[in-house]
Amino acid sequence: MTRLFPDARDYRTITVPIAPEELKRIEARAGAPLLPGQREQYQYFEILDARGQVIGYTQAMTQKGEFGAIELVFGMDREYRVVRVYIQRQRERDQSFREESFLNRFIGLAPADADQLTDPRGDQGTVGTRAVTLGIQQALLEFDELVLKKRHKEPRGFDAAPTNVFRVATP
């Protein structure tokens, strides 16, 4: 994660259950179903500075490639814009989706842009570039539906600790 956020001091794992109606909305917006194993829970990581303040978010996604899973990781800044994407594991014949020139096309995207997201390679796209595009799109949509929309409904601030953080009682 330091590759995405060199100033990060630590991270916090957040797991959010996906309700059936939320799953329907996410899949309808993406135009594709989430993979088995990704349909019940959504997980992301809050990246923290030395004071415990959130300085960004990291998401790890798995998508189907031609020869197996493609694991990708991307970071978002505090404004929820993609700052960097990298490929963690893959075993594809076509390797063009690993090129910086392709991955950099996603930098600056925000969850609000995800509905219109298409493979930057267009007709020249491969199984790999389409898988990476779909993975980023679904992750952004999940963040939008399961995190941002819920935050807008709640009175607490964006940096408030999530409910799964244990606290030391103060006198």
Binding site: R9, D10, Y11, T13, L48, N164, V165, F166, R167, V168
Partner: peptide, 9 residues
């Protein structure tokens, strides 16, 4: 099972 404090996991 993972527990976090305010500084992270």
């Amino acid at each position: 099972a993972v527990w976090a404090d305010r500084q992270g996991d």
